[in-house]
Simulated assay, not measured.
Amino acid sequence: MKYFHKPVFLAEVLEHLIYDINGIYIDTTFGSGGHARGILKKISNKGKLIAFDQDQFSILKNKICDKRIIFFNANFRNIKQILKDYNKQVLKNVSGIMADLGVSSYQIDTPQRGFSIRFNNILDMRMDLSKNKSALNIIKTYSFENLNNIFYKYGEFKNPKRISRKILLNRKFINTTFDLVKLFKNNIKFLSRLFQALRIEVNDEINALKKLLKQSINLLKPGGILAIISYHSLEDRLVKNFFKSGNIHGIIRSDNKGNNLSQFKKRFTKRICHDKKEISKNNRATSAILRITQKI
């Protein structure tokens, strides 16, 4: 059975991403295939779509039968090497790249994946089930210092020590999502940040995003579009600074005339936030931010 959902910012992504209907496009986060289907509707028979997803079940359940699309069951962090092995001619000839970051609706709504506080199941949160590290593994084995680190960096908690201490004192009783929810008995916002921190650590999401951003420059042809949808400030800050500076450190480098050496056009770069109409149709858009830029 295929799992469909309404993709976030579909119209906006298609409006800005597809400028050459015969071009090569990359969907780095295929998920349930919402954006991919939209792209295929806009490109010509000569166009091509390359779709990545590290979750093998997302591809199996939502695979699109179309000769213009090629699937890679892989993390987008390795995108350049995978495409190089596939076809070197793709490198520097890509018209557009998009990424819809975070958890797919399919993953959230599948109880046994352990992503959601709505379902009681083993704490897993792996997007790639072939990997060993799960959220439960982190809860059971991480030191006090390591727990502090992920809750501070990825949950943006001001006092992570209290959270880490409570987990260490109760870790032998924690196995499921509800065990963690019951332990903290806190509001949805707190629990969402707690789950977010664990999920980011499990999937090494921030480092994967950095690698994607760095490699995108070498994949896009001049005039190529990069569109990223993020769902929390950690991702969005990274994307924003990369678009502005052209590097993941966010350091703006200038030539001797004071011109920004970023490989992206400042005037083209856009930030699009949700509106009430979008949220009414899709509550996943509540925290979503779409940033779009163009390679010089």
Rank of each mutant, 00 (worst) to 15 (best):
Y3H: 12
I18E: 05
G33V: 04
K42E: 15
K42Y: 08
G47Q: 10
D53C: 09
F57Q: 15
K67S: 10
K67D: 13
F71T: 02
F71S: 10
F71A: 09
F72I: 08
F76D: 02
N78D: 13
N78A: 02
I82S: 03
D85E: 13
Y86L: 10
Y86C: 12
Q89T: 12
V90M: 03
K92T: 11
G96V: 02
Q107D: 12
D109K: 08
F119V: 01
D124S: 13
M127G: 04
D128T: 07
T141A: 02
E145P: 02
N149C: 05
I150V: 11
F151L: 10
F151Y: 15
F151C: 09
Y152S: 14
Y154D: 08
I163H: 10
S164P: 11
L169F: 09
N170P: 00
F178Q: 08
D179Q: 04
K182A: 09
N187T: 11
N187F: 09
K189M: 12
F190G: 09
R193Q: 13
Q196M: 14
I200S: 00
V202E: 04
N218I: 03
I225V: 15
I228H: 01
H232P: 09
H232C: 03
R237E: 07
K240W: 03
F242R: 01
S245L: 10
S245C: 13
K270M: 02
I272E: 06
K276I: 10
N283Q: 14
A285D: 06
A288E: 04
L290Y: 04
